[in-house]
Write a protein that binds this DNA or RNA. Structure first.
Lengths: 339, 339
DNA sequence: TACAAGGATGTAAGCGCTTTCAATCATAGT
DNA sequence: ACTATGATTGAAAGCGCTTACATCCTTGTA
């Protein structure tokens, strides 16, 4: 029968029952220093019997290192972020680190709170997979000498690694394809136009379409991300009279919302209107019609993020700068323009 | 210009610069005890200038309380869990608590690890929104006198609150509807049949169909949850020759996978086969065709979870037992049986 | 004017762990 | 048998914070 652990079970208690000092228990539990085999097993047995779990806060305080990686994401509902998180978490665990997440819901104020929380937790490294970063936040970070990786940030930041996606090139691939199958009136659907990664895509869209002289554009921005946002933005486009034959969306979720709204208004996809997404989340393959989109290798990003952080922490390696190339995935939500 | 914070910025440093003792700084920062107004502002100014953030681990150690709620979920990709999490987090924040999540991917071993991690973190309360709980884990918890809430656990556990969903009643609503619109051959699609909440639904399905004499059932279990699982399970059903006119799925994601596979094999939904889900995740309204499903009030669950935990922590209130009633949502993925 | 009652601060003892440093013990070499 | 060497262990000093408890000022009051 395992012993009932008390609510205030400390290493000292274990030491006492095993008739050794706390130092020895610590050595056993951390597998450092040298401990006689018989002592080791005795300590382990007692710890087991007591169902003892070390207090991570005390441990962190004593060690002066939290062995924890922090990650702040904009929208935790977006599986896109989750995939990055999970890949990073996998690597972190493999190296004995924990991960903690915070999400901001695209609110700058919440970002600041999350950032402070991460600092309060004394994370050993921090990944910011958020769109709303601005310079002042980076200041908040400077001085705490922890490795940082920023996702989707255009201007480089001192001592911070960057992972970026080449949105321009991605959007260009989609627009080129659409143009080649006859589309001349294309709309672009996005949200939060002030966020840099969003505006980068908008800009890329505009520029690319401009390269194809006879084509024209229309830009519709919703006040919110996701399905609702897509629907709203689509409604605006359709109400505008622009009558697009193709709608390019800033991400897959918005594309789903757009498709939903088109269908609501009696338009078929892709016969009447072609729709493209961005991200290639898992669902985009499963929804109807399967979505033409741009694949971003989220696992790869997660691994890069973890590696940048961990190598910075453990070996003090310098910051990196990585550019990810999206890949065009042709499915059934796009087709030739209606004549 | 704000001062460059050093990497080892402690409360003591703040105290030193503000020419007061650490006790006073602590009082100011925690807003307790009495401090002269001029002192307070001075301390706050210094803290601000230094960009000081208290070390949460030290704080926790000194306070003996982490002010943190833990939540363990099976599958973090499932927006279902996320919604519960966010609702709970909202309440937690409102009461000055942080939240940390861990996910298990339905692995019992991972559950144990997560559980230990939560204990190591000395969370003040723990919610387990997992399907794979078993008695031994509860033992692991007993003795640590922290409020616990278990989701979807059939047998009551001492001192633990429970929140359950009345799956039987939910499945019954779906089956009744299907029967009434003429379905006689219904299949049930699930995964991990050994998990209690899954088997509960299976059982409810079988029993309900049995109540309608002329109807027959077929059960198909995939080895994995989610879209892939749904596809696999559908493939099995279709290959079996059972030729169902309706497929009842254990959750919405599997339903999406099922629909995808049906379409792949040239079957129309709902004309050839009706499909129902369970959970009513947001996407179920947006996918095509919009999914008939059973709504579970996730926000409500999240609030109940947080409230059970927080009231247990703060006021020592006893454990509760809540049953949630799912609500049938009729959309377009179901219709009369083909004749 | 002297004294009680608070208000404002500082002192110092932990919280539960890790980690140096020194002390002790066992073993091998001579 | 005696010392050198390395393996084992324990004592104790923090890690950065909170929190009695003690101390020293202010006031208001008799």
């Amino acid at each position: 029968m395992t012993k009932q652990p008390s609510s205030r079970l400390s290493l000292e208690e274990v030491a006492h029952r095993a008739k050794v000092s706390t130092a020895t228990v610590s050595r056993v539990l951390n597998n450092v220093g040298s401990v006689k085999n018989s002592t080791r097993t005795r300590v382990l047995r007692v710890a087991q019997e007591l169902n003892y779990q070390p207090n991570m806060h005390a441990r962190m305080l004593a060690r002066g290192s939290s062995r924890t990686l922090g990650m702040i994401v904009s929208n935790i509902e977006n599986p896109f972020f989750l995939d990055i998180f999970r890949a990073a978490e996998y690597d972190a665990h493999a190296q004995g680190f924990e991960m903690v997440v915070a999400h901001t819901g695209y609110e700058a104020e919440q970002l600041l709170k999350s950032l402070r929380l991460m600092i309060a937790r004394r994370v050993a490294g921090l990944a910011m997979i958020v769109s709303e970063t601005d310079r002042s936040l980076v200041e908040e970070l400077s001085g705490h000498r922890i490795p940082v990786v920023l996702y989707d940030v255009t201007t480089p930041v001192d001592n911070a690694s960057r992972v970026r996606v080449n949105y321009g090139s991605g959007i260009r691939k989609a627009v080129q394809y659409l143009y080649h199958v006859g589309h001349r009136r294309m709309a672009f659907v996005s949200h939060h136009a002030t966020l840099p990664p969003i505006s980068v895509r908008e800009k890329a869209f505009r520029e690319t379409v401009d390269d194809f002289a006879p084509a024209v554009t229309w830009i519709s921005r919703a006040s919110t991300d996701g399905l609702e946002g897509g629907r709203l933005a689509a409604r605006k486009v359709l109400a505008s009279g622009f009558d697009p034959t193709a709608i390019v969306c800033v991400n897959d979720f918005m594309a789903f919302g757009v498709i939903r709204e088109l269908r609501e208004q009696g338009l078929r996809v892709p016969e009447d209107v072609s729709v493209t997404g961005f991200d290639n989340i898992k669902l985009s393959e499963y929804c109807f019609p399967p979505l033409t989109t741009l694949h971003i290798p989220r696992d790869q990003i997660g691994h890069i993020v973890a590696d940048a952080l961990l190598s910075g922490i453990k070996r003090g390696e310098p910051a990196r700068d990585v550019m990810i190339e999206p890949e065009f995935v042709l499915r059934d939500s796009t087709g030739p323009a209606r004549s």
